[in-house]
């Protein structure tokens, strides 16, 4: 049962990342591209977790944690740069 659910989830999350990539490439404005990247990293966490379940190993948990932290920090840094023209004032 988990096997089938896993394949369905793999497909849906991969499609979600494809849609994000579409918005990243097309997105008319800069904030659109930022939010597409932001969503993409959250979706990649989901993909890593699914891979973890598939392999039944816990080595990738730290990877998920690191992506969550670095993705948030990079989003905030880019937003700050666009808002103030500087990151650390």
């Amino acid at each position: 049962m988990i096997g089938i659910a896993l394949w369905i989830s793999f497909f849906l999350v991969a499609m979600a990342i494809v849609l994000n990539a579409y918005r990243l490439l097309v997105g008319p404005s800069l904030p659109d591209r930022i939010i597409a990247l932001d969503t993409m990293y959250v979706n990649s966490i989901a993909l890593i977790i699914l891979y973890t379940i598939w392999l039944s190993t816990r080595v990738y948990f730290e990877g998920a944690l690191l992506i969550a932290m670095l993705g948030f920090i990079s989003t905030v840094a880019v937003c700050k740069y666009l808002l103030r023209g500087d990151i650390i004032e």
Partner: peptide, 10 residues
């Protein structure tokens, strides 16, 4: 979870 993720990206 996968369905909700997909819907929000859609």
């Amino acid at each position: 979870g996968a369905l909700i993720t997909f819907i929000s990206s859609f």
